[in-house]
């Protein structure tokens, strides 16, 4: 899967999870940029992504996510 496709699918997950069709994400998006993206929702985001892409994150990977870009990089690696 290409990085762009991953990005598109992740954006859909965001829109579903936060019930907001207007959300647009890019590599620099962080929790500060999305309303309601707090620690309670964060775990839901992680599990949704794992489910959707049929991957499993390691704790060390998750702790190093500084922004959505990092997340997409890791996902892309895992689905290739």
């Amino acid at each position: 899967m290409t990085r762009e496709k991953v990005t598109g699918e992740v954006q859909n997950i965001f829109r579903d999870l936060f019930d907001d069709e207007s959300i647009v994400i890019d590599d620099n998006t962080t929790a500060d940029d999305v309303e309601d993206w707090d620690s309670l929702e964060h775990i839901n985001l992680i599990t949704s992504i794992e489910k959707h892409f049929s991957i499993k994150f390691a704790m060390s990977e998750v702790t190093h996510f500084k922004n959505v870009g990092n997340m997409i990089d890791t996902i892309t690696t895992k689905v290739s």
Binding site: S39, L40, H42, I43, I46, T47, E50, F57, M59, V62, T63
Partner: peptide
């Protein structure tokens, strides 16, 4: 506490739905 206790625990228990939090 969020970074070193809450989030790791949440991650470990993430399959448990609401209980993960």
């Amino acid at each position: 506490l969020a970074d070193y206790v809450f989030t790791p625990l949440q991650f470990l228990l993430r399959r448990l739905g609401k209980f993960a939090s």
